[in-house]
């Protein structure tokens, strides 16, 4: 079986990537009758922290999947640091881009093996340092077998927050140039979300970061926002600029603020 995504014959290998990303009239669909992205164009500069906001199914996560070449664009092009992603070796992309998402894959093995998977040549000291920065070290050390606790299918089950912190430790160990956070703190209780947010803050430092979220509070640290609606960039700018436009972002903000007020009032 031949995978859909393969290296082009002239694919280049880059030691590191800076994180300048350009979407140029990108179109994508799984089914031709249902376009996911339509003629999407934008630029992300290295070092930016960009937030993608929009309703479920608006196409936010597809943008992340196209940058990492989980899929290839149907039309238009995506370039990273001036190279078309199709002409960059897939290994370069996988080595330099980390995704922390709501869906966390832990394989059957020890906690240390699961973290070290990001960089097999890492020392155990680096594994512990990454776990510590991810606020995972304390809960790991409370387990009777510490870093040698077996996790994954049929083994000790971890909570959603613990699994997420293992995935953040993985990403920290990998030291990616480009970081994609895809609903990374969704469905967490407040304490866990704070621990994870604290870990994510350390992860973001000095890296080009794309945060995908439908909960706007998650995007408070982004220096630039793009609102996606029906597969198109509906608006982009800083949070203040989008509020003034009174468009998609404003509507989402108002809706979520009202919901929060109702929750606080116990309605």
């Amino acid at each position: 079986m031949i995978p859909d995504i393969t290296d082009a014959p002239n694919a280049v290998e880059l030691e590191t990537i800076r994180g300048d990303i350009v979407f140029d009239h990108v179109g994508f669909h799984y089914n031709p009758n249902r376009p996911i992205l339509k003629d999407v164009s934008f630029t992300i500069h290295a070092g930016d922290h960009v937030g993608l906001v929009g309703h479920t199914g608006s196409g936010k996560s597809t943008i992340a999947n196209l940058i990492t070449r989980m899929y290839d664009v149907i039309s238009g092009s995506i370039s990273i640091d001036g190279h078309n992603v199709k002409e960059i070796k897939v290994e370069t992309l996988r080595r330099n881009i980390a995704i922390v998402s709501q869906e966390i894959y832990l394989f059957r093995g020890t906690i240390a093996e699961n973290i070290r998977y990001a960089r097999p040549d890492a020392t155990m000291e680096e594994v512990i340092d990454a776990a510590r920065a991810a606020n995972a070290h304390d809960f790991i050390m409370r387990l009777p077998e510490g870093y040698e606790t077996l996790i994954g299918i049929g083994s000790r089950s971890l909570s959603g927050g613990e699994r997420q912190r293992i995935s953040i430790a993985r990403a920290l160990l990998m030291k990616p140039s480009l970081l994609i956070l895809d609903e990374a703190t969704a469905a967490m209780d407040t304490e866990t979300e704070r621990l994870i947010s604290d870990a994510i803050e350390k992860l973001i430092k000095g890296r080009t970061t794309i945060t995908i979220a439908h909960r706007l509070s998650t995007l408070k640290d982004c220096n630039y926002l793009m609102a996606i609606e029906h597969g198109e960039i509906a608006e982009q700018g800083t949070a203040e600029e989008l509020m003034e436009k009174k468009g998609v972002y404003y509507k989402l903000y108002t809706l979520q603020s009202e919901q929060m007020k109702k929750v606080m009032a116990g309605l």
């Binding site: 155990m124 000291e125 512990i128 050390m141 009777p144 077998e145 510490g146 040698e148």
Partner: peptide, 17 residues
Amino acid sequence: VLRSFPITDPDEYIAVR
């Protein structure tokens, strides 16, 4: 005192809490 790797490295990375 706790072992980080009680099975394979019992003498290394001992946490003191």
